[in-house]
């Protein structure tokens, strides 16, 4: 049971990274971004290209850090992939959503176009990489560490939790200490007043997409390190991500973080009673129950 909770926390980290970006984009840009999961997949595959093609070609050696399953190549690939997905997110905003915003399109149209973006990204990934499961480093035995209380955890998974915490702390500092971060909170608080104050809200929107894209890309890479890569991986995360976002009150970054852990743990613990294939329905059920009982989420005001 404790093992399940621990694994739930690991999955929760990945869900939380997605949910934080989703909730920010929803609050500031006003889009329920159905392509968020596929940004996650894209991040994982860009890192794959870096690790398996670009970096070997550049001549970065194939090292491994101690008990971890990866080395310098992944350390370089990680931020590069986050940056790449950040720019892809901005690219789709300029190409598509900006025009829809100008036309004052309603939320349904925006959500449906993001669904279109989701399909485009997923199909491109399928065309380029095929539909097989792939690994960052195939054929490696990855023994788990045995910790007290019967907890078994792989070194990679400790890295996943640390990276997620590091990124969330970084985001927190950005939002509270930098001018752009404060302007982002201001825009999310009161977009009309932000405009009147002289904040260029289009720039804030680009930053929001960039951060949302980068965080979800990080989630995708972490999942790829832990399990494997598959073109549908991000799409499968979409329901848990939405559930975490709604649970933590839409627009609330810290709520999304908590929501991610709650959904992650609930999904894993459910496997003690249900078939593992019911993980997604569990997340979906939690989402529906929240929407029925407390639609504003646990951190909502009203």
């Amino acid at each position: 049971m404790i093992s399940l909770i621990v694994y739930g926390i690991i999955v929760g980290c990945i869900i939380a990274l997605g949910a934080i970006g989703l909730t920010m984009v929803y609050k500031i840009v006003g889009i329920a971004n159905f392509a968020h999961g596929d940004f996650m997949t894209l991040g994982a595959y860009i890192a794959l290209v870096m690790v398996s093609i670009v970096l070997p070609w550049v001549g970065i050696p194939d090292t491994r850090f101690g008990p971890l399953s990866f080395g310098w190549r992944m350390v370089i690939a990680f931020p590069v992939s986050m940056l790449f997905v950040a720019f892809i997110a901005i690219f789709f905003d300029k190409l598509l959503y900006k025009k829809l915003r100008k036309k004052k399109s309603n939320a349904v149209i925006l959500a449906m176009s993001s669904l279109g973006v989701a399909f485009i990204i997923r199909m491109l990934i399928l065309i380029i990489w095929g539909s097989d499961y792939v690994f960052y480093r195939p054929g490696l035995l990855r023994p788990a560490l045995f910790l007290p209380l019967g907890i078994r955890i792989r070194p990679d998974e400790i890295f996943i939790v640390c990276t997620a915490i590091f990124l969330v702390v970084l985001l927190h500092l950005f939002l509270n200490r930098t001018k752009m971060g404060k302007a982002m909170r201001a825009t999310s608080d009161n977009p009309d007043l932000a405009l009147v104050t002289g904040i260029d809200t289009e720039r804030i929107i680009s930053w929001t997409w960039a951060i949302g894209g980068a965080l979800t890309a990080a989630g995708g890479i972490l999942y790829g390190i832990d399990v494997q890569l598959h073109p549908g991986m991000g799409w499968n995360f979409l329901i848990p991500i939405f559930a975490a976002t709604i649970l933590g009150s839409i627009g609330n970054i810290y709520g999304a973080l908590i929501g991610g852990f709650v959904i992650g743990i609930a999904q894993e613990v459910s496997t003690a009673f249900l078939e593992p294939t019911y993980k997604l329905p569990v997340a979906f059920m939690i989402m529906i129950i929240i929407l029925l009982v407390r639609p504003e989420g646990i951190f909502g005001k009203e």
């Binding site: 909170r185 608080d189 009161n190 009309d192 007043l193 009147v196």
Partner: peptide, 10 residues
């Protein structure tokens, strides 16, 4: 503006 003229969470 007359209403909503502050950033409440800041």
């Amino acid at each position: 503006p007359q209403v909503d003229n502050i950033f409440p969470s800041l």
